[in-house]
């Protein structure tokens, strides 16, 4: 005889394995993943293109700001650049631009700057408040003269991940031209430490931490994310299925 208990236990076990297979399989997975697009659509509908992320007072800054992700970019090239205090480092801007650029750290520091005290929200759930400073990404894109077919901006990084591939991230032009989207070379009034992504880190304040690419080496303008890495727009998106839109 089937007791209620057996029914409940097999039912629960069936539910769980069912959930795992729904989450992995084609149709179930794509239905669940449609949530990301819905959230992006809804959020973009209620917020203006230039709606600012919250900024904080200096006394609200976190006493300790956790280093997360790659603590360093463990390559000989990066070690050499870091040893030379990034004097030989150049930020390359290429792809769908009329004027490819190679910009030095000193040039970035000489551009008009924006400083902002914002809350960094990790996908894991923790938050830390820090001060970031650097030029607007929009200014650099304007200097390079984006071609009209450019739809996404890709950030290629120096850090190598577990599978040996380089970290990368991407954002669309709405976030690329957002007034708080900066290329930060300073954090908490000091040059970026290695752990926080020296010499340059993206700040894209309306999204979660993994979008804020560290150790940025090259910025590429593209029409589609399909040809980059695994095609999903970022290292975590490709390797683990993290959401490309990380506004939620």
């Amino acid at each position: 005889m089937i007791t209620r208990r057996t029914l409940l236990v097999t039912g629960a076990a069936g539910l769980l394995t069912g959930c795992d297979s729904i989450g992995r399989s084609g149709a179930g997975k794509s239905i669940l993943e449609s949530g990301e697009d819905a959230h992006r659509f809804l959020q973009r509908s209620i917020m203006g293109r230039d709606t600012l992320a919250r900024e904080f007072r200096a006394d609200q800054m976190s006493p300790r700001f956790r280093v997360n992700g790659s603590a360093t970019a463990d390559t000989p090239e990066y070690a050499a650049l870091s040893a030379g205090k990034f004097v030989d480092w150049r930020l390359k801007i290429d792809g769908l631009v009329r004027r490819p650029l190679a910009i030095s750290l000193a040039q970035l520091q000489a551009m008009p700057q924006r400083a902002q005290i914002t809350r960094h929200d990790c996908v894991e759930g923790w938050s830390a408040i820090g001060k970031w400073q650097g030029p607007h990404l929009s200014r650099i894109l304007d200097l390079a003269q984006l071609k009209p077919e450019a739809k996404f901006i890709v950030f290629h990084c120096a850090d190598r991940m577990g599978d040996g591939s380089a970290y990368y991230e991407s954002i669309d032009l709405i976030d690329a031209y957002h007034p708080q989207t900066i290329l930060a070379w300073a954090m908490n009034d000091a040059p970026l430490s290695t752990g926080h992504g020296a010499p340059l880190r993206l700040r894209v304040e309306r999204q979660l931490g993994y979008k804020h690419a560290k150790f940025v080496m090259r910025i590429e303008a593209v029409a589609s994310l399909a040809g980059i890495g695994g095609g999903k727009g970022g290292y975590w998106e490709d390797s683990n299925g993290y959401q490309w839109y990380a506004g939620i």
């Binding site: 959930c19 795992d20 989450g23 669940l32 993943e33 299925g241």
Partner: peptide, 16 residues
């Protein structure tokens, strides 16, 4: 959910 640890898969379920 899922029964194995996957933050990204859990977020996919949660956000939907």
């Amino acid at each position: 959910i899922p029964s194995y640890y996957s933050l990204s898969a859990a977020r996919t379920w949660h956000l939907f």
